[in-house]
């Protein structure tokens, strides 16, 4: 037991938690934006994959890291627009379209990767974002290593949250997005085009998801390989419900899940001898299901989530 407690006392654990949380934060915020506008985006798993691939590929082909991120966001937005074509404009099933987008985007990522780099046995590498030491702060004991020695992209991921909170709750466009998810007819009756708002929200959310994927290849690791996203997208979908569709809680949820993940890696080291390691791999998921059960009971769904809005039809 004391071994377990010791884990929490190491700065390495906290630094790992923050690193693991970043793609989850970006993915969850992206999904949250889509769902707040009334569109479930199950394309997230595939969009994160293609974000990871395209950002990495941009840099591998000689591009710069930040423009690589923008490229990943752009590709993500394209797939978001594709998803909204099906779900918002044609009013098709959001589940079916989302799963389709995931399959398309994942397969396309691997296909393009193999096509551009046919003969690589060991995964090729790029030079990823480097940790920056914040002068003064990073020299602090414990906190310096845990919080103030991360890559710029890590800080960016955390900075996204307050910006999204501000936009959603303090600007006219944020109000329109939230209203589209609650009662699209109310948006229409105030002279705003629901389809435009939803399309824009899905594109923006998908861009965030793609950047979340790119975090893995451009900041956490330096290569793209198969099975990289490994269900992170689905975790984000669950985290949105856990967070009751609120961005602040989404940040907490992502940190909680990341903390459990960082803990299980370390717990394997001291208990791996007598407990199979698969048990530890399972832990974050089991605990997040438990947390979901507790939190989701109080969750307040956007009322119009999953309901397509068709203009000019008989009401």
């Amino acid at each position: 037991m004391s071994d377990l407690l010791e884990i929490f006392l190491t700065a390495g654990f906290w630094a790992a938690t923050i690193r693991i949380a970043c793609p989850l934060i970006l993915g969850t915020i992206g999904e949250l934006i889509c769902e707040r506008a009334g569109v479930l985006n199950l394309g997230i798993e595939g969009i994160m994959t293609i974000g990871a691939m395209s950002g990495w590929m941009w840099v591998y082909q000689g591009g710069d890291l930040w423009t690589g991120l923008m490229f990943a966001a752009f590709i993500g937005a394209l797939f978001g627009i594709l998803h909204s074509m099906f779900t918002v404009h044609l009013g098709l099933s959001q589940h079916v379209s989302g799963i389709g987008i995931t399959m398309l985007a994942s397969s396309l990522s691997f296909f393009v990767f193999r096509m551009m780099l046919p003969s690589s046995t060991t995964p090729p590498k790029i030079v990823p974002f480097k940790p920056i030491n914040i002068p003064g702060l990073s020299d602090m004991p414990f906190l310096g290593e845990a919080i103030f020695s991360h890559t710029p992209m890590t800080y960016f991921s955390f900075a996204v949250v307050p910006v999204v909170i501000y936009v959603l709750y303090r600007t006219p466009v944020g109000l329109a997005v939230r209203m589209s998810g609650e009662n699209p007819m109310a948006v229409e009756a105030q002279g705003i085009n629901v389809l435009t708002i939803r399309t824009a929200a899905v594109a923006t959310g998908s861009a965030f998801m793609a950047v979340g994927g790119a975090y893995l290849t451009m900041s956490a690791f330096d290569a793209f390989y198969f099975g990289m996203i490994n269900g992170r997208g689905w975790i984000c979908v669950a985290l949105v419900i856990f967070a009751s569709w609120r961005p602040g809680k989404a940040l907490l949820g992502a940190l909680l899940f990341a903390g459990l993940d960082a803990m299980q890696v370390r717990a394997q080291q001291f208990a791996g001898g007598f407990i199979p390691y698969q048990f530890f791999l399972m832990l974050p998921y089991v605990l997040s299901i438990a947390a979901m059960i507790v939190m989701a009971r109080r969750a307040r769904y956007p009322k119009a989530l999953l309901i397509p809005f068709r203009r000019g039809e008989r009401i």
Partner: peptide, 13 residues
């Protein structure tokens, strides 16, 4: 929209 305030409903748009 039920989950939004009266003011938010009115100022939208």
């Amino acid at each position: 929209a039920d989950n939004l305030s009266v003011l938010e409903n009115i100022v939208l748009g």
